Amino acid sequence: MHPISALITGGIAGILFTVLFTWINKIALCDDVLGVYYFTAFVVLGVVLLQVFSAAHL
């Protein structure tokens, strides 16, 4: 991946993560001071999506 493309992809991912993290925090109303549960859920979702999309190329 070209460095400029990587920068754009990282920027989009960062914005998307921040928006979704804030949105889920407001909806769930869980008293999670550190935000560990939501972060772990995003990581698991990312791994699952990575496996799904990488398997499509095989």
Rank of each mutant, 00 (worst) to 15 (best):
F21V: 03
V47C: 09
A6T: 06
K26I: 07
F42T: 03
I8M: 09
D31E: 11
I8K: 09
T40W: 12
D31S: 08
I4S: 08
P3S: 03
V47E: 10
Y37K: 13
V33D: 13
I24F: 15
I12E: 02
L20N: 04
H2G: 11
I24H: 04
F21S: 01
W23V: 11
Y38M: 06
A41P: 00
G46A: 02
A6C: 00
K26Q: 14
V19K: 09
V44Q: 01
L34W: 09
V47M: 12
T40H: 12
H2A: 09
I8H: 05
L34P: 00
D32Q: 05
A13Y: 07
V48K: 08
H2Q: 09
G35K: 02
I12W: 02
C30P: 00
A13F: 08
I27T: 10
L16F: 10
A6M: 05
A56S: 06
L34E: 06
V47K: 07
A55W: 11
V19P: 02
S54V: 11
N25T: 03
V47G: 01
T22D: 11
T18C: 06
V44S: 08
T9I: 06
I15L: 14
V52C: 06
F21H: 10
I4C: 03
Y38T: 13
L58V: 15
I12Q: 01
Q51W: 13
S5H: 08
L34F: 12
L49E: 07
V36N: 02
H57V: 10
L50K: 07
I8W: 06
G35W: 03
G14F: 04
T18W: 13
I4L: 14
W23C: 02
L16S: 10
G11E: 04
L45A: 15
V47I: 15
V52H: 10
L45E: 07
F53S: 01
L58D: 13
I8N: 00
F42Q: 07
V19C: 10
V52A: 04
F17K: 01
D32V: 01
C30H: 14
A55Q: 08
F21R: 04
T22Y: 14
I4N: 07
L29G: 02
V19H: 05
H2D: 11
K26M: 10
H57Q: 13
Y38W: 14
P3K: 03
A41R: 04
I4T: 12
L49H: 06
L29F: 08
K26V: 07
F53P: 00
L20I: 03
M1D: 08
V19E: 07
G11D: 04
S54Q: 14
Y37N: 05
V44H: 00
F42Y: 13
L58W: 14
M1P: 06
S54M: 11
A55E: 07
F53Q: 04
L29D: 12
I12N: 05
N25K: 14
C30Q: 12
V48T: 10
V48W: 12
L50H: 14
G46R: 05
T18F: 09
L16K: 04
L7D: 00
F53H: 01
V36A: 09
N25A: 11
G11I: 09
L34S: 07
G11Q: 06
S54F: 05
V36D: 00
T40N: 09
F39M: 10
F39H: 01
D31V: 02
L49Y: 12
I8S: 03
L45D: 02
Y37Q: 12
M1N: 11
V36P: 00
T22I: 15
D31C: 01
L29R: 12
G11N: 05
